[in-house]
Structure formats: structure tokens, C-alpha cells
């Protein structure tokens, strides 16, 4: 029996797939009656052309978009030719004598007794305990159990702690009285 030459499917007939209002294949679904207006409103919005002021909804419930965090930076472009010559000013290196980080302490000056030496109330003092105090050194000294910053000089072989402010008297030491030096001031940090 030969097949009939009429009836049945004809290639190229009917609506082209995707030729509907959505530009893609469609499928019939059952929806709850109560949700009909919502679905129709969504489909209506979905059919609209996308405009910058009125972006088209692709889906009402977007899937989460995972962001990847990288453990390391990815270099892009040319490496900087200056990288090999990178130099910067290191304040620690500048302010602290090389190899003396362990013996350097920072103290805060209070009062006006050393303004002649450029040490003002509230200034930070870098104090190196490893240095041996010399004639003329600005030192931190222990006087009556307290710490004080003064200039160390000697008079007739006896130590004298001098203020750098005419309103302050020198501190002299009697025979047998011991002067203990806590450290030698190397720098003043002054806020202008």
C-alpha cells in the first residue's frame, strides 16, 4: 500500500517557531485563577521592549549570581617599569638608629622646661637607652623616683641637670648622691 499523497504534515507549514510575541518557543501551562492577573501583568511586562528607563524583567525570581573571590591579585597589563626601582622613605629607619629598635622607647614630654631645646609640651621624644650619655646630651633622668627630661652637663666633675628655660633652676647633685640616667633623647616629634 502506498502512502496517500495528500493530508498529514507538510514541511514549512504553520507558524514558525519563535514567531510569537516572545520571540522564543512557548508552552501551555495551567495557572491558578487567582494568579491570572499577576501572570498576565508579568507577561505583558515581559513582552515590552527593553529600555534603559524601563528595564525588561527577565525573570521574576533571579537566580543567585555567585561572585568569585580570588586569593591573589591577577596582574593585568604591563608591569610598571619603575617597580624595580621602588624606593620609599622609611620613617622608622630614619628616626631610629640602625639596630637600636629594641632599645628605643617613645615618651611624651610635659611642661615647658625644655623649650630652648625645641621640646614643647606634648611632644613625643624618641629615647635610646643603649646610648651612653655625654656632656650636653638631652637625657631622661630619674630624679626623686620620677622621670624628667633635661640637658646633662658637668660642673667640677659633678653632674648637673639643666633646663632649657631660664625660669627653671638647675638640678645639682651633692657628693655621694647618685644620678641615674634612663636614656638619651635622640629625636623630638613636634606637631605643628
Amino acid at each position: 500500500m502506498t502512502p496517500p499523497d495528500h493530508g498529514g504534515a507538510r514541511p514549512g507549514a504553520g507558524r514558525k517557531p519563535g514567531s510569537n510575541a516572545y520571540g522564543e518557543p512557548t508552552t501551555p501551562v495551567r495557572i491558578p485563577v487567582s494568579q491570572t492577573p499577576t501572570v498576565l501583568a508579568f507577561l505583558d511586562a515581559y513582552r515590552q521592549e527593553t529600555r534603559a528607563s524601563d528595564p525588561r524583567a527577565l525573570t521574576s525570581n533571579p537566580p543567585p549570581m555567585p561572585l568569585t573571590a580570588y586569593l591573589s591579585k591577577v596582574p593585568a597589563g604591563f608591569p610598571s617599569p619603575a617597580a624595580d626601582y621602588a624606593e620609599e622613605l622609611d620613617l622608622n629607619q630614619h628616626l631610629i638608629l640602625q639596630g637600636h629598635a629594641e632599645s628605643t622607647f617613645i615618651l611624651r614630654a610635659s611642661g615647658h622646661s625644655m623649650i630652648g631645646a625645641g621640646i614643647f609640651d606634648g611632644d613625643e621624644l624618641l629615647v635610646d637607652r643603649s646610648l651612653t650619655p655625654k656632656e650636653g646630651s638631652v637625657v631622661i633622668a630619674v630624679v626623686n623616683g620620677d622621670l624628667t627630661v633635661k640637658r646633662l652637663t658637668f660642673r667640677q666633675g659633678q653632674p648637673v641637670l639643666q633646663a632649657e628655660n631660664p625660669h627653671f633652676a638647675d638640678r645639682t647633685f651633692a657628693e655621694g648622691e647618685e644620678l641615674s640616667i634612663w636614656g638619651v633623647v635622640t629625636r623630638v616629634l613636634h606637631r605643628v
Binding site: 622607647f105 615618651l107 614630654a109 610635659s110 611642661g111 621624644l125 624628667t148
Partner: peptide, 8 residues
Amino acid sequence: WEELRVVT
């Protein structure tokens, strides 16, 4: 910095 030893 706020708690540095103060010297007079």
C-alpha cells in the same frame, strides 16, 4: 600613643 609615659 595615647598612653605614652609622660616626662616632665
